[in-house]
Design a protein around this nucleic acid. Structure first.
Lengths: 207, 207
DNA sequence: ATCCATGGTGTATAAAAGTACACCAATCGT
DNA sequence: ACGATTGGTGTACTTTTATACACCATGGAT
């Protein structure tokens, strides 16, 4: 089947998209016709059918305003991800009080439960391209594999490091030669894995 | 006005939310009634009116399926940002064919017109914490100030560099000692500024 | 030369869906 | 004791809206 769209079809698809974004519900055939200066509904209907045949939108026969586009922006749904401030040692990681703000990210980028964002302090991970002030996108979990970037709670301070295996156990490695690795020994600091880094966002507007 | 919801109202609001998420268009009064085992439309209508009065949803009188909830998860507003593939020298930067995909980002993160994402190739900007495979979030514009990170079109190849002023003009500086700056001279390569880098995303799911 | 897809107009029809009104019952605050 | 609010049922009515069919024009493919 030919998947390419004609000019008219493209315009109509775009209108449906914009209308839906603006109103949060789809337009009627008449609204589409009016917007494009068409006096006949049949023209619109044919275009919609053509678009449906090309897989660009889905319609429910007979139902009013029952159409939605399958590809394109209005399809992509967002997930609301919390930005955590101070992380306390107390149990509930994602407690309301710790949430500074929330942002919407595409759901295709956040495909796990319990995501959160954490602002990075310091330059201990510049070697991994994580700068001071960046936000790391984290999947909350209390275990991790060697080699992974993790967020750990070190004596009431959340930190991003790489988990590594050593001869006598594990350690948290910075990626900056001016910092020393932190061994995970029973007599060392209290350490708790909070999650695994899944991505990095550097957005000044997210200060 | 009392903003709290009764049990029934809460259930109906949730149903509207879920139905809309599932179908991408809102339910009719009858569908709401059926789902809750109500035999009369008037019950539904009263609940919707109550919800509208409490500011939880907006309805367009007389129109079918014309309602949407104002607060709550489905509200999460995002901006759909295109991801550009090959950038050709031809005029329309944001032409449909160049758009590989789109992702939703929080509108608070993208407060300008014509945003786009571009995948970074190479390691010429590691010094600025931009790695191979990262995506830069760009504000499309054809001018830039010295010191800014820009996306430039160098002989049909899009590249991220820092714009700098030199004694005899401007140059594009990499942030990696193994690369050399590119002077912007009349006899040098054809250069066109495409935009200014506003952020960096490192998300493996963004292939 | 003819067929098919696109892109229309126009009219008539039918069904889907919102509205209006009458009426009922339980609960709660005054 | 009374009215207001919530939460209903049921019927009738009207409007919105999708559909069906007839017909026309253009341009490309066979």
């Amino acid at each position: 089947m030919d998947e390419s769209l004609t000019g008219r079809q493209e315009l109509i698809l775009k209108f449906v998209e914009q209308y839906t974004a603006a109103h949060h519900y789809p337009p009627t055939l008449r609204e589409i016709a009016d917007h494009h200066g068409l006096s006949s509904l049949n023209g619109v209907k044919k275009h919609l059918n053509a678009l449906a045949k090309k897989g660009r939108l889905v319609r429910k026969a007979g139902a009013r305003r029952a159409l939605h586009i399958t590809r394109g922006p209005s399809q992509t749904e967002g997930v609301s991800v919390p930005i955590l401030g101070r992380i306390a040692a107390g149990p509930p990681l994602l407690a309301e009080e710790q949430i500074l703000d929330r942002v919407v990210l595409d759901k295709s980028l956040v495909r796990w439960e319990t995501p959160f964002l954490l602002k990075v302090k310091g330059d201990s991970m510049v070697g991994a391209g994580i700068l001071d002030g960046d936000h790391v996108l984290v999947k909350a979990q209390d275990q991790a594999e060697p080699g992974e970037l993790v967020v750990a709670l070190l004596d009431d301070e959340a930190t991003v490091k790489r988990l590594a295996r050593t001869a006598d156990g594990y350690e948290l490695q910075p990626e900056n030669p001016t910092y020393a690795p932190i061994p995970l020994t029973p007599d060392g600091p209290t350490i708790r894995i909070l999650g695994k880094v899944q991505g990095v966002l550097r957005l000044p507007s997210l200060s």
